[in-house]
C-alpha cells in the first residue's frame, strides 16, 4: 500500500488551510476575550463561574452542532428554539404522567425528532425552502408548546430527570462531559461515516449528489431529524437546569446557534465547515455574552451586540470569499 503512505503526508502538509487559520484566530479571540473580562471582573476566572458559563452554553453547544450539520447541507433550522420548548413540554408531561424518567427522556427526544422529521420531509423530499419551512415550524412548535403547557410552567421533582441538566460534580456540571461525548459521537458520524460524506455532498451540489446515487433527499431528512433529536436532548438539559418546564424557553436560541456556527467558519452556502469550528464559535460567543453579564453591561445592549457580531462575521466572510474569487 505505497499509495496510501504517499497520499497521507500530502494531506498533513496542506493542513494549514483557511479553516485551520480561522480556528487559530478564534482561539486567539477566545484568549483575548477571557483575559479582557478577567481584568474587568475578578469573578470571571473563578471555577464557579467557569462552571456556570459552561452550563449556560451547554444547550447552545448541542443545538449548534445540529445546526452545523444542517448548514453543511446548505440549509437552516429556525425551529430549534421552539422545538426545545415543545420537546421539553412533551417530556415533562410524559414524566408527570408515568413518573418514569426514562419515558420522559424518550418522549422529549422523540418529540424533538418529530418536528425535525416534519422539517426534513418538506425540505428534503418536497424540496421546499428550508428558511420557509422552518420559519413555519418555528411558530408551529412554539404554538404546540404553549398549548400543551397551557401557557404555564410545570415544576419537576423527579431527581433522575433533573440529573443531566442540574447535577454538578464539584464545580463541574455533569452536562459538560455529556456535551463532549455528543461532540465525539457526531464527529465520528460526520467525518468517518458515509452519511457524513453525504452531508457534505448534499451541501456542495445537490444535483451532483443525486446523479451519483447518493440520495441527498434522504440525507436532508436525516439531518433535520438529527437537529430535532439534539433539540430534544437540549430540552432535557434546560428542564434540569431550572427544575421546571417552561413554554417560553429557548427563545432566540436559533439566532445564537446560527451566529455561533457562522462564527465557527461554516459556510452559509453549504459544503464547507467543521464541528470543531462550531465548538470554538460557541465558546467565544458564550464568553462574550457571559462577560457582558458579569461586567454589568446594560442588558438591552446585549441584543445589539449580538446583532453586530452576526452582521460583522457575515460581512467579513463574504469579503474574504469575494477576495478569493478574484
Amino acid at each position: 500500500m505505497t499509495t496510501t503512505t504517499a497520499a497521507a503526508p500530502a494531506r498533513r502538509g496542506k493542513a494549514m488551510d483557511s479553516l485551520t487559520q480561522r480556528y487559530l484566530v478564534l482561539i486567539g479571540l477566545i484568549v483575548i476575550a477571557s483575559v479582557g473580562f478577567g481584568i474587568a471582573n475578578d469573578n470571571f476566572y473563578s471555577l464557579a463561574n467557569i462552571g456556570i458559563l459552561l452550563r449556560s452554553i451547554a444547550v447552545l453547544f448541542l443545538v449548534s452542532m445540529g445546526m452545523t450539520f444542517i448548514m453543511l447541507t446548505g440549509g437552516i433550522d429556525l425551529s430549534v428554539g421552539s422545538n426545545v420548548a415543545f420537546a421539553g413540554g412533551v417530556g415533562v408531561i410524559a414524566l408527570t404522567a408515568t413518573d418514569s424518567a426514562l419515558v420522559g427522556f424518550a418522549a422529549a427526544v422523540l418529540a424533538g425528532m418529530a418536528i425535525g422529521a416534519i422539517n426534513g420531509v418538506f425540505i428534503g423530499r418536497l424540496r421546499l425552502s428550508a428558511f420557509m419551512v422552518t420559519l413555519a415550524t418555528f411558530a408551529l412548535a412554539r404554538g404546540l408548546a404553549l398549548v400543551i403547557y397551557d401557557a404555564d410552567s410545570i415544576n419537576v421533582f423527579n431527581g433522575a430527570f433533573l440529573w443531566l441538566g442540574g447535577q454538578s460534580w464539584g464545580n463541574m456540571p455533569v452536562v459538560i462531559p455529556f456535551v463532549a461525548l455528543v461532540f465525539v459521537a457526531l464527529s465520528v458520524l460526520l467525518y468517518r461515516s458515509p452519511f457524513g460524506r453525504d452531508v457534505y455532498a448534499a451541501g456542495s451540489n445537490f444535483n451532483t449528489a443525486f446523479v451519483l446515487g447518493r440520495m441527498p433527499q434522504r440525507t436532508l431528512v436525516w439531518v433535520y431529524v438529527l437537529s430535532g433529536a439534539l433539540a430534544g436532548l437540549s430540552a432535557i438539559i434546560t428542564v434540569g437546569r431550572v427544575s421546571s418546564g417552561q413554554p417560553w424557553t429557548g427563545l432566540y436560541l436559533e439566532f445564537d446557534a446560527i451566529t455561533a456556527v457562522i462564527l465557527g467558519g461554516t459556510s452559509l452556502f453549504g459544503g464547507r465547515g467543521r464541528l470543531l469550528g462550531t465548538i470554538l464559535g460557541v465558546l467565544l460567543y458564550g464568553i462574550i455574552i457571559n462577560g457582558l453579564v458579569l461586567t454589568g453591561t446594560n442588558p438591552y445592549l446585549q441584543n445589539l451586540i449580538k446583532g453586530l457580531i452576526l452582521l460583522g462575521v457575515v460581512l467579513l466572510d463574504t469579503l474574504v470569499q469575494r477576495r478569493k474569487a478574484q
Binding site: R197, Y200, A201, S204, N205, N207, T208, A209, F210, V211, S267, G270, G271, R272
Partner: peptide, 12 residues
C-alpha cells in the same frame, strides 16, 4: 451543474 461538488476535495 451536476458533475462536480465544488467546495469538496478531489478525494471526496
Amino acid at each position: 451543474k451536476n458533475g462536480i461538488l465544488p467546495p469538496l476535495s478531489v478525494r471526496d
